[in-house]
Design a protein around this nucleic acid. Sequence first.
DNA 1: CCAAAGTAGTTTGGTACCGAACGGATTGGG
DNA 2: CCCAATCCGTTCGGTACCAAACTACTTTGG
Lengths: 160, 160
Amino acid sequence: MLDAERDVQARLGDRPLDFASLDAISNVYRAAGTIRRQAEREVLGEYGLSFGGFTILWVLWVWDEMETARLAEECSLAKGTLTGMLTTLEKQQLVTRQKLDSDKRRVMVSLTAEGLRVIDELFPKFNSFEGDMTAGLSVEEKRELARLLRKVIINARGDG
Amino acid sequence: MLDAERDVQARLGDRPLDFASLDAISNVYRAAGTIRRQAEREVLGEYGLSFGGFTILWVLWVWDEMETARLAEECSLAKGTLTGMLTTLEKQQLVTRQKLDSDKRRVMVSLTAEGLRVIDELFPKFNSFEGDMTAGLSVEEKRELARLLRKVIINARGDG
DNA sequence: CCAAAGTAGTTTGGTACCGAACGGATTGGG
DNA sequence: CCCAATCCGTTCGGTACCAAACTACTTTGG
């Protein structure tokens, strides 16, 4: 148990709360925040990328190009947020925007050659960092972790 | 499998990457982001609280009062960030700051009566939301999820 | 046709959040 | 003592992020 979990138990253990859900969801946050900061410091900082910016490059790497609406969805960002981040990435010359001929409201985003070079070099480093973050877990445990989180994600999306 | 996971596999499956770690860590983020937004919309919004602000109130609820350095650590925030958020919470009259007599650089933070009232009313709602987010998981699975995340958290802290 | 409704991305205003620089308070070696 | 190093919280400059208002474009119904 983490110190925090123990203290919560000591302080609130007599209340009619759902502690199993509490610990699970609290730890999702603790994990995400801690990993994010660690990633920005150890891996992304030297490339001048935020975690969000990295995610955009990664998504474009996997899918080649994508319209902004879908990209915002994939990156779990509000569309207004994505606009700003794409502007930042455009200034860094890592992505380009192009209006669609078929519908001039829409915008297609893709990696530049430099963007491709960066994510090609960076992603293996990031993946190795992911390995470090899951050190001590067996492959089966990693899969189980991914599986359980998948259920949580679907629940969270469902009510949206 | 989530669509995103499937597409990654299709696109990068032939590369020498650690996919078990990739899926596990990616899903930690997806889950955290999705839950956070959902929580702010469904539970915290009506109280005018951000997720971070709520976390501060929650920590103070469990520990009664806390110095800023420890509070920042518990909430996974940079100390500069905490200063701003405490100012917001002070304006909302939910917390108070008090310099220590023994060391005038230090600041003790505690809930106001109103802050206590709010978190007392809000936390059960939030805990019920946590239950919704883990619907479909057995108690054992929730514990397993918390356990696996705990290992990740410790790894992430360790290198810091 | 064309106006009204709908859709897509951007702009805006505000909070959250970080790292680095700052300034007051404390502590320790000489 | 004393001042230099250290320690704390705050301030500062900048990005990330959201929701809501806005603008430009497309679709639809009469």
